[in-house]
């Protein structure tokens, strides 16, 4: 899956640990990629605890659950957002065990294939943890983007996620965004953290198929982010010229190279 060349790139945004800003980053990156002229679909892949719709201020009538259970088509559940990209929302409250039956995974795969012609990139906003749903969406993706913060717990969970995907799913390539870094030197923090992870993965995860980690960029802690969440707005909507909004655009630019 990882090495297939397809017109539509599937990018899974995962983290291991929850609360690292994955959904906020997904939404902001999707909007920036859309502003670059890309046709973007975001799938709320946090099937058990979806909240992308809340962040985007939309109230979906149909969700991916309805589509997967035959109550509507996947196309009917997709809604355009005012942010420039489309959203396939998910529901909340379903236990993980009830979600990934073999029928549903087959249906998901065929739906993704049918959507290929409509979008340049499909972003999966996965949930926290390393449950079957998260790992399945990561396995479906061409690119795996891991969001990590400098907290030791986040670092540990990111490493555990990489280890599982490497050993069980034979994934070797990971993109990283370091979020919530010290604003005084967030760039250096990102580089140091990813260098450290590279050292650990090369030491412990074997050399036959080495793990390759690529830092997409670092995002500093910024009060503008909780402010944007509270107001259900993206950073570019609050102030498109703000450094943080520009930074997100830069990260989207790096990602855009892979979408082309």
């Amino acid at each position: 899956m990882a090495d297939e060349i397809k017109r539509t790139r599937r990018i899974a945004i995962i983290s291991g640990k929850g609360g690292v800003g994955k959904t906020v980053i997904t939404a902001n990156l999707a909007a920036s990629l859309s502003s670059l002229g890309r046709r973007i679909l975001v799938i709320d892949a946090d099937l058990g605890l979806a909240n992308l719709d809340i962040l985007l201020g939309v109230e979906p009538k149909l969700t991916i659950h309805d589509a997967l259970h035959g109550l509507c088509t996947m196309e009917e559940a997709i809604i355009p957002t005012a942010k420039g990209f489309d959203l396939l929302p998910a529901g909340s409250g379903l236990p993980e065990g009830a979600l990934l039956t073999s029928t549903i995974t087959e249906q998901l795969e065929s739906t993704l294939s049918s959507l290929e012609s409509r979008y340049d990139a499909i972003l999966f906003d996965a949930g926290a943890g390393v449950g079957d749903v998260v790992l399945h969406f990561a396995d479906l993706a061409h690119e795996i983007l891991l969001v990590v913060t400098p907290e030791p717990t986040s670092l540990m969970d990111a490493y555990a996620t990489i280890k599982i995907l490497h050993q069980q799913y034979k994934r070797n390539d990971f993109l990283l965004i370091v979020n919530q870094a010290n604003p005084a030197h967030f760039q250096q923090t990102g580089v140091a953290l990813v260098d450290h992870l590279r050292n650990i993965t090369s030491k412990f995860l074997g050399t036959d198929q080495p793990v390759r980690l690529e830092l997409i960029g670092s995002i500093p802690r910024d009060p503008a982010i909780p402010h944007a969440i509270m107001h259900r707005q993206l950073l570019r909507e609050i102030n498109p010229q703000a450094p943080l909004a520009c930074l997100i655009n830069q990260l989207a630019g790096v990602l855009d190279v892979r979408v082309q």
Partner: peptide, 17 residues
């Protein structure tokens, strides 16, 4: 435990570590 210790050896100035 060895992996855990190696991971936690990272020191980042001004960050949680």
């Amino acid at each position: 435990q060895t992996e855990r210790s190696a991971l936690m050896a990272l020191k980042l100035e001004g960050n949680a570590h």
